[in-house]
């Protein structure tokens, strides 16, 4: 616990360094590198807009992410637990999974009728692969004693997937969900930089266009806080669901 608390001291330290650097810069550079106080003021003034942006962003992120996790788990557990399916999909996984999903953004925006639909789609793609790979590898490496038990208990395929493979894969699924969440945020903001008129990514892009750097930096910090909250929430969920895994 003391270590965790001492880590928090890093934040005032960083802000101090920031303030110091902003102070010693020549005046003409200051507008590019706003001081903490200016950013704080901008943040305070923008909170309303940022909150609206958060709501708009979450309307994209949450459906995209949840759909991705559901699809990845529903599809990944059977694939991972079935030898032939694992081999059948292995080439696709090796080719498609490492493609940086940001490359889909322009095409998705062109292809799908609304910005929201295309943004949800790219968030889905970005979050799907890490969770899918986690579910597949988790379901493929169920410890032998659990598989033996399932066989002795006479589990059918569906019962095995649901009662054994899913639970055994859950730690790997959560690892994938962490990576998937980070991907989802990246894709969300990239998509918003491209084509949104609201949202967190749009906020940053908008004020960068106007060279209003205090607001832009405020937007970055605010986005960081939202990302951090989402990751913390996920970690809490993981802790609750994996209580047995200690």
């Amino acid at each position: 616990m003391p270590h965790r608390l001492s880590g928090l001291l890093l934040f005032p330290l960083l802000v101090g360094v920031w303030a110091f650097v902003a102070e010693i810069l020549p005046p003409q550079s200051r507008y590019l590198f706003p001081a903490p106080l200016a950013v704080a003021r901008a943040l305070w003034e923008s909170l309303g807009v940022l909150w609206q942006g958060t709501v708009a962003s979450m309307m994209i992120l949450i459906p995209g992410y949840i759909l991705a996790v559901l699809a990845a788990v529903l599809f990944g557990i059977p694939v991972g637990a079935t030898t032939w399916a694992r081999h059948f999909f292995a080439p696709l996984m090796r080719v498609a999974a490492p493609v940086p999903p940001t490359v889909y953004v322009p095409y998705a925006i062109a292809l799908l009728p609304t910005f929201r639909a295309s943004a949800i789609f790219v968030v889905f793609i970005g979050a799907f692969w890490p969770v899918f790979l986690g579910a597949v590898s988790g379901a493929a490496t169920v410890p032998e004693r659990h598989r033996d038990n399932a066989r002795v208990l006479g589990f059918g395929r569906w019962e095995y997937w649901r009662r054994v493979a899913f639970h055994a894969a859950l730690p790997a699924i959560f690892n994938g969900m962490g990576v998937g969440m980070a991907m989802a945020f990246i894709l969300l903001t990239v998509a918003e930089l491209f084509g949104a008129n609201v949202g967190l990514g749009h906020f940053v892009q908008y004020y960068a266009d106007f060279a209003d750097y205090p607001r832009m930096v405020a937007g970055i910090i605010y986005t960081g806080a939202v990302t951090f909250s989402a990751m913390t929430l996920l970690a809490q969920l993981q802790k609750r669901m994996l209580f047995w895994n200690i």
Binding site: R145, H146, G154, W244
Partner: peptide, 17 residues
Amino acid sequence: PSPQRGIVFQDYALFPW
């Protein structure tokens, strides 16, 4: 395998979840 022939393993093989 069949439930007719139940087995207790050496290591504790209850499902931990």
